[in-house]
């Protein structure tokens, strides 16, 4: 997708021309791209990218839907086969592209559909969390959780908590790509 594609739904931030090529106005700080989180009634909303394994967390989120649980609309889930498929580089990518927080979620260790995937996830992200914190990232902005296919309430609570934890932190501009 073109980096110049419009921020649909937030006309205040861009001028929409025909053909949907919008140019950001010079509102955001010159060093960072516009904040991804949208303003609703003038209030900034955190924008969270979640990576969910197909077998547990994605299923848990499905169950939350089937149970008509309500939670904040701030997270978008990317479906992956296993939390072990989540490359730390995807996490960095999300921050670069404007996510205010990232969640990696999968089956509880011992319940991995593929047997061992999430044990590696656990090692990898325990380490990455510490490294990101060391580099000044607020630990609330990058979290990992085990959410099983039956833990719909946990999924709801994790999304809700994460949204509320990130809200006071404001938009994440660290490592944000500068738009050309």
């Amino acid at each position: 997708m073109s980096a110049l594609s419009p921020k649909s739904g937030s006309p205040a931030d861009c001028a929409v021309t025909e053909g949907h090529v919008g140019l950001p106005v010079l509102d955001p700080p010159p060093t960072a791209a516009p904040d991804t989180g949208k303003t609703k009634n003038g209030e900034w909303q955190p924008y969270i990218v979640g990576f969910a394994c197909n077998w547990c967390t994605y299923a848990g989120a499905d169950l939350a839907g089937l149970s008509r649980m309500q939670y904040p609309p701030n997270m978008r889930l990317v479906r992956v086969p296993c939390s072990g498929r989540v490359n730390p580089q995807f996490v960095l990518r999300a921050f670069q592209k404007g996510a205010d927080a990232v969640l990696v979620a999968g089956c509880h260790p011992g319940d991995c559909h593929y047997g061992t995937g999430n044990y590696f996830t656990r090692r990898r992200f325990l380490l990455m969390q510490r490294l990101l914190t060391f580099m000044g990232v607020d630990p609330r902005r990058f979290q990992a959780r085990w959410i099983s296919g039956s833990e719909a309430p946990k999924f709801r609570d994790v999304v809700t908590e994460l949204t509320e934890q990130v809200r006071p932190l404001g938009p994440n501009r660290l490592w944000r790509e500068v738009e050309p």
């Binding site: 670069q96 580099m135 490592w175 500068v178």
Partner: peptide
């Protein structure tokens, strides 16, 4: 860029 350099350093 700052962003790409950080990606490089962490990766």
């Amino acid at each position: 860029t700052s962003s790409a350099n950080a990606f490089f350093a962490i990766t």
